[in-house]
Computed example of a mutant assay.
Amino acid sequence: MTDTENAPHLAADSALIVIDVQKGFDDASFWGPRNNPAAEDNIAALMDAWQASGRPVVLVRHASRPGSVLAPDQPGYAFKDLVEERRHESLLVTKTVNSAFYGTPDLAGWLASRGIGQVVVAGIQTNMCVETTARMAGNLGYEVLVPLDATHTFDLAGPEGLSLTADELATATAVNLQGGGFARVVTTAQLLSAAPAAQLTA
């Protein structure tokens, strides 16, 4: 069975939440090795599909503490060009923590005011702000879809000399989200296949 045959149902008002696609994440000396070089192209394709079908897009930007490449006074705070070029009328949420639901303006309030019950979460980093936002969305009762190939992350060191590669962290996120009942993990191709069909049948 192909990706397109497994395509999820997309609501006509499904909101695409694009997390922290900021220039500062291009600084390999700060973050270390990353995975999934196709992430940005997949994010761009999703943004194009959402905007073409009239679905809402939410852009989330992280404002880090001074000294970080994502601090508001740093060039890395800006969105990557692929997002800035597609910004249009998207809602902009600014946050200082991992969850987009703890940002300004209030994301949950904005979604509720529009009666939106389904969200698609993509962006950076897979196991940090993407996973945290998806988990919280699931807890709040939203139907959550996460295109894992429209996310990326970085190798990470933990306690006692433990470490995981970016690919291992992405796999853990997929297992946590779908195995834990927070979200359905899908592919960009599945969502692109579903997007026009959902618009026509809405």
Results as ranks from 00 to 15, higher is better:
M1C: 13
M1D: 13
T2R: 13
D3C: 08
T4Y: 12
H9N: 12
H9I: 12
A11V: 08
D13L: 01
A15D: 05
I17D: 06
I19G: 11
D20K: 13
Q22L: 01
F25D: 04
F25H: 09
D27Q: 14
D27L: 08
A28F: 07
F30E: 13
G32L: 07
P33F: 11
P37S: 10
A38P: 01
A38M: 05
D41W: 02
A44Q: 05
A44N: 04
A45E: 04
A45S: 13
A45T: 00
D48C: 01
Q51F: 02
S53R: 08
S53F: 03
G54P: 05
V58I: 15
V58P: 09
R61V: 02
H62F: 11
P66Y: 00
P72H: 01
Q74Y: 06
Q74L: 03
Q74G: 06
Y77D: 07
K80M: 05
L82T: 00
E84P: 00
E89Q: 07
S90C: 02
S90N: 02
L92V: 06
T96Q: 06
V97G: 03
A100L: 07
A100N: 05
A100D: 05
T104D: 09
A108E: 13
G109N: 12
L111G: 06
I116G: 10
I116V: 15
G117I: 00
G117Q: 08
V119K: 07
V119D: 09
V120H: 10
V121Y: 05
V121K: 04
A122V: 15
G123E: 04
Q125D: 12
M128G: 15
M128N: 15
C129P: 02
C129R: 02
T133W: 05
T133F: 03
G138P: 03
N139P: 00
N139I: 00
N139E: 08
L140W: 01
G141M: 01
G141D: 01
Y142F: 10
P147L: 04
D149A: 04
T151G: 07
H152G: 07
F154E: 10
G158D: 10
S163N: 13
D167V: 14
E168W: 09
L169I: 14
A170Q: 13
A174F: 10
A174T: 09
N176T: 15
N176C: 14
L177T: 07
L177G: 13
Q178S: 14
G179T: 09
G181W: 09
F182N: 04
A183L: 03
A183V: 01
R184I: 04
V185C: 11
A189C: 05
A189M: 06
Q190F: 03
A194P: 02
A194N: 05
A195F: 04
A197N: 08
A197P: 01
A198N: 04
A198T: 03
T201D: 08
